[in-house]
Design a protein around this nucleic acid. Structure first.
Length: 564
RNA sequence: AGGGGAGUCGCCAAGUUGGCAAGGCAACGGGUUUUGGUCCCGUCAUUCGAGGGUUCGAAUCCUUCCUCCCCUGCCA
């Protein structure tokens, strides 16, 4: 399935331990069958990727299956747009449900029958309390609840009412179907949980066929059971719901998968709450779900991340039961490791500064060979034009250089990558004192960017011929929030505004080498010395490329400077 | 007057029956380098939330305590 030559030994985790143990004891007849069960009410984010990699990953590793199942029981929040995006993202991540894409809504009739069976067993009843009363009767975390006055309706009456609920005879909220369990249970989930509610709403798949919709707790265990799931893996917040999961299946005497919970992913610098992400989209704080600043799968995709790097990340963070906060730097590390090996090296100048070679013939042009990957000859090379008028990076020149500076400065000599050594002989400034051009002399004996005379030239600069470079736009991204991660407050408008990073998107107008004029949308590369980039899939046009910075290169010099 | 979980390096995280505390990220040193990138080498937990106990021996067993997370939707 994947290459294992570079991958470190996969860390074991408790889910795998359970599966291996089950395989050993033949608990499920040798089967491993998981499922990834998103609700189609938003786009998938990096936290979902952890769950996807876990569920599809163990199925793959142990010769089992993993279903994609949409948990679509709440027509008010769900939409086909989300269904489509979820399928696209799971596929992009590299997983295949092998035709087993299911919907909880496909089971509505069977689920309804289960509810009827529960009523017949005297284990469910129609409650006619208002929502507020139900809440009041439920008690508190420390105090037991009380029985609803409708709890002892006869089976016949319950059946009649439930059928009429289905028939649409009652308005929303008039009745609910509840499991008859224990209003004094220390586990609040078990205090006669709601199984069905009335919702006169069109469902994105079943249309107007239903006026009642089953709740998550009732739907999920039954769906798992219908599909023959063996290991039902979910996140920690469903731990309390496991008791109900088991109760429903036992009450009905049905095939009974086991639920296991793991800790969801938290990461520095990003918000991973669906509710908050929706808000960012709806309020126009970002461009949409696939804004490169979003921690969504499609956001990372548009930013230039590879599915391989995300899978590697999910492998490395491990799966455990303790709350965690993973450093964003780990994701970046996985990305760089992948891109370093695959991304062709090309030239781009983000913040151009004119460099004129005063002793180079005015009308002369020559070409130099540039390999696409210095460490991988197989990736080939191309020639780039050189002339008297060049662009270099503005940040590569400093009039008053600090101690360890080995880029360009007055009197200093640097190497222009694969071309010549040049020495700065003059600085041209505009009226405001800003440097607008540096003038240099080149050494013809250093053609190709090398000299055998033992001269030590520590700095190597990337450059572009000003006469041949093509204009390009570069988009640099930073975290959306200053305060970082889970702490970001999206609900309080003032706090949200204060925590928003005003520089999360910076657009630069620079130049790229001629061959990149018609860069294919989605094409990834490394602009030497600056970072990994991808041609934006929405904004790039033939002759007018737009590049998103996927991530910068590691920069030990920046650290050096900070230290002073 | 609750119930369910979790505490191992700055961040993740292994540690199956007690027997020398894996690995990754980050950080920090050094080497190589026509990318201040990559790569290579090295450093980085006498201690596992705290105390007590059992034991020749405890992150692992017992015990008391502390901290954090989840649960009172007709959301999932």
């Amino acid at each position: 399935m994947s290459t294992e030559n570079t991958a470190p030994a996969a860390p074991s985790n408790f889910i795998k331990a359970i599966i291996e143990d089950d395989l050993k004891t033949d608990k499920w007849g040798g089967r491993v069958h998981t499922r990834f069960p998103p609700e189609p009410n938003g786009y998938l984010h990096i936290g979902h990727a952890k769950s996807i990699c876990l569920n599809f990953g163990v199925a793959r590793d142990y010769g089992g299956k993993c279903n994609l199942r949409f948990d679509d029981t709440n027509p008010l929040k769900e939409d086909v747009e989300y269904v489509d995006s979820i399928q696209e993202d799971v596929r992009w991540l590299g997983f295949d449900w092998d035709g087993r894409c299911f919907y909880a809504s496909d089971y509505f009739e069977r689920i309804f029958e289960c509810a009827v069976a529960l009523i017949r067993k005297g284990l469910a009843y129609v409650d006619s309390l208002s929502a507020e009363d139900i809440r009041a009767y439920r008690g508190t975390l420390k105090e037991p609840g009380r029985n609803s006055p409708y709890r002892d309706r006869s089976i016949e009456e319950n059946l009649d009412l439930f059928m009429r609920m289905r028939a649409g005879e009652f308005p929303d909220g008039a009745h609910v179907l509840r499991a008859k369990i224990d209003m004094k249970s220390p586990n609040v989930v078990m205090r006669d949980p709601t199984l069905y509610r009335i919702r006169h709403a069109a469902h994105h798949r079943t249309g107007d066929a239903w006026r009642i919709y089953p709740m998550y707790d009732f739907t999920h265990c039954l769906s798992d059971s219908f599909e023959g799931i063996t290991h039902s893996i979910c996140t920690l917040e469903f731990e309390n719901n496991r008791e109900l999961y088991d109760w429903v299946l036992d009450a009905l005497g049905m095939y009974h998968p086991r639920q296991y919970e793991f800790a969801r992913l938290n990461m520095t610098g990003v918000v991973l709450s669906k509710r908050k992400l929706i808000k960012l989209v709806e309020e126009g704080v970002v461009d949409g779900w696939d804004d490169p600043r979003m921690p969504t799968i499609c956001g990372f995709r548009r930013k230039g991340f590879t599915p391989e790097s995300i899978r590697d990340f999910c492998e490395r963070i491990g799966v455990a039961r303790s709350n965690n906060l993973v450093d964003y730097a780990l994701l970046e590390h996985c990305l760089r490791e992948d891109l370093n090996a695959r991304a062709p090296r090309v030239m781009g100048v983000l913040k151009p500064l004119k460099l004129t070679i005063v002793n180079y013939p005015e009308d002369q042009t020559e070409e130099f060979e540039f390999p696409f990957h210095p460490e991988n000859e197989a990736m080939g090379s191309r020639k780039l034009p050189f002339c008297r008028d060049l662009y270099i990076e503005r940040t590569d020149f400093l009039e008053n250089a600090p101690k360890k500076w080995f880029r360009l400065a007055p009197g200093m000599e640097v190497r222009l990558r694969y071309a010549y050594y040049v020495r700065c002989v003059e600085v041209v400034k505009d009226a405001s004192g800003e440097v607008v051009e540096v003038r240099c002399e080149y050494d013809p004996a250093t053609k190709g960017g090398w000299s055998n005379d033992g001269r030590k030239v520590k700095g190597t600069l990337h450059w572009l011929s000003a006469r041949h470079a093509v204009p390009a736009e570069f988009r640099l991204f930073e975290h959306l929030f200053l305060t970082g991660g889970a702490a970001a407050n999206v609900d309080d408008p003032e706090a949200a505004a204060a925590s928003l990073n005003p520089n999360s998107l910076e657009t630069l107008r620079g130049f790229v080498e001629p061959g990149l004029a018609d860069a294919e949308p989605g094409w990834r590369c490394q602009f030497e010395r600056t970072g990994y980039f991808v041609a934006d899939t929405k904004l790039t046009r033939p002759g007018a490329p737009v590049f998103n910075r996927t991530t910068g290169l590691r920069d030990s010099f920046a650290k050096e400077l900070q230290k002073g």
